[in-house]
Nucleic acid binder design. Sequence first.
RNA 1: UGGGCUAUGGCCAAGUGGUUAAGGCAUCGGACUUUGACUCCGAGAUCGGUAGUUCAAAUCUACCUAGCCCAGCCA
Length: 544
Amino acid sequence: MEMQSNFIKTIMEEDLASGKVSSIMTRFPPEPNAYLHIGHARAIITNFELAKMFGGSTNLRFDDTNPVKEDAMFVDAIIEDIRWLGYEPKQILFGSDYFEESYERALLLIRKGLAFVCDLSAQEMSNYRGTLNTPGKESPNRNRTIDENLTLFKAMRNGVYKDGEKTLRAKIDMSSPNINMRDPVIYRIIHINHHNTGNKWCIYPMYDFAHPLQDSIEGITHSLCSLEYDDHRVLYDWFVEKCEMPHIPHQYEFGRLNIANTIMSKRYLKQLVESKLVKGYDDPRMPTLVGLRRRGYTPNSIRNFILSTGLSRINSTVSNEMLETSLREDLKLQLRRVNAVLKPLKVIILNYPEGIIEELELPNNNENEALGMRKILFGKEVYIDRDDFYDGVPEKGWKRLAMGLEVRLMHAYFVRCVDVVRNTDGTISELHCTYDPETRSGSGFTGRKPNGNIHFVEASSAIPATFNLFEPLLVDSDGDRPLEERLNLNSWTTIKGFVESSLKDTVSEDKYQFVRMGYFSADYDSKKGNLIFNRTVELKSSYK
RNA sequence: UGGGCUAUGGCCAAGUGGUUAAGGCAUCGGACUUUGACUCCGAGAUCGGUAGUUCAAAUCUACCUAGCCCAGCCA
């Protein structure tokens, strides 16, 4: 799938055409403090695809300027996720790689009289900032001499002060209607071990200061971020200019992508994991990339999904069906279409000879010959899905089995239900059917039409398997209701059934289309002798 | 009477003054079908509102309305 036209692509084309830039360089700048989710996928895919489209490249840069919130453990996880999606960063870098240069640029700002050391406490600074409707007041320390600022800032770096005791602030405009311009803090004091730089630093640059510098140093041409940074762009440009950065990057904002009924906030995902409502960040119900992967989503399906949603300056919410459609389309021609019975109902074929097992040949994927043929078994006892039998008189239009009706067991024979055997409590224990040898698939029989086609698994060779079926974690999209009330208590169902014998060597992450049932992927816990499949998505169905 | 951003069918989204406003998802018809799948046909918007500019506007202007973001020493 090609990336469709969007405003950023247009900007890049124009910049290239006008000579404003000679090549495209983008970056994906995650903060290493959480697992990546499908929302991040939009940023990753957009940055990489856009650069690739114009022959440019993309850096992965960990935005690790706040050691109190970040953790090295996420670094490897994020790299792994990006590679899984199929992208290779030109370079893997850290914001902390630039601490020395950031410091030098801060010194430059001070020397130019554009930054000062401020003694205000966090609370005082908040009071001085003013409000959305009223201008702020200037810090009493705003007019310190350049020499004094230099001395103080160096002392900050040297660990003379405690956390929060002083900050370095840009000197801009306390009455600006844009609050970001009201003398923003650019360095704060944090005495804590940093995952990369250890205890080398006790002052850390703020995002607004660090980011434009990082972009400039790396030669980023188009720095893409989300809409809420729109108000920060003027500050971004201010730092690039005032710090006299030789390369001038430009920031462009685009909207975030949300999926209906899916919450992606870190706080929420963490809450789900810590309260054990899910089994971890890679729980197949989670919108994390590790969760989607475990569920069975492919990198290509995620990429196509993201590209199909387009890109604009609107925070959009698309339905989950778009993601599901991408998965089906990706896998449709790639996978073997095999038989699995999720809710087994035994069928005895009364007139089929005892002790005979025959082999039936069929295509692995009737839309893709390249996948070849395989054999399945058929015998006197088979399993069909309970949902394929209607206990009673079905409405007309029913296209499966019921007492007295005849259906085709796909690629085998027509069978007619002649008896329903029940347990003492009235539930069905097994079905008795008869088959018609003349209706063997491939024989060219056209004498009559069956009442539908259902799949089956031969009983003696069937391999027991566990199936995990999922529903959304949330039951509705009413964001105003408390989370606890929105949780779907049936989001995970485990059932046991059978798969055809050809699946015996299935290994973790193997994927199949189970005929009429959907796309499934072998779970990480699946192993020979104990097959476990996650249902990634169901097949579409017009049956109500 | 703070600032910024946005507004095209149910959900996304092309479109940047000029034939019947792309496409995808969803929906509803119909054909086909050894997956109620797939595939194939067909159906639906006058572009937030109003008033202007123009021979001509979703595209320009003004005003209005609605939604989102901003007052971390978070990113």
